[in-house]
Structure formats: structure tokens, C-alpha cells
Amino acid sequence: MKHKELIDAIADKINRSQEDTENLLQAAVDVLTSQLLEDKVINLQGFGSFELKRREERLSVHPATQVRTLIPPKQTVNFRQSGVLKVKLKGIPSHE
């Protein structure tokens, strides 16, 4: 589902114009990211939580050239699904 499709779907649900919905979505995302960058955990009930996590520095070795590289630490956005969502997802048959 692309960004546009998502806006369409939401607009249908809340009976608002697509423009309004797009602005709202933009604002919602801005709020979410700004809170996230203040190092807060965003917990969305029934869906999951967002959190900033630090990935430690590590050594990587190029498999072919054996060149060793020190990868610096980084901070990434981590999403963790809620238990409720996980249970709901069990209903989907595995795609094997």
C-alpha cells in the first residue's frame, strides 16, 4: 500500500477530503518523529511501539578481500509489534 492509497483509505473512513487527510497524516507523522527524536518511546496500543535504539560499533570483514572495517555505532528507529497484533497475525496462513 502506497502513501496515496493509504490516504484514500483513511479519507473514506473518516469522511474527510483527501487534502485534509494528507495534512493530518503529515502532522501526525511530524509529531511522531519529533517525539521519537526526543528519545521518547511511542507506544500505540494494539499496534506496537517505536523507540530509538543504539546499534553498537562492530568489525566487519569483507568476505572476498578480507578487508576489515570498523563500522561506527548508529542509532536507528526500532519498531516492536504489540502482542495483540501478533495474535491477530497468526490468522494469516504462512506463505510457504
Binding site: L32, K40, V41, N43, L44
Partner: peptide, 10 residues
Amino acid sequence: SKLKINTSDW
């Protein structure tokens, strides 16, 4: 522990 924000805060 980090400050938590839930759906209603959002």
C-alpha cells in the same frame, strides 16, 4: 527508563 507516550498523548 525512557519517557513513554501513548496513543492519547499522540
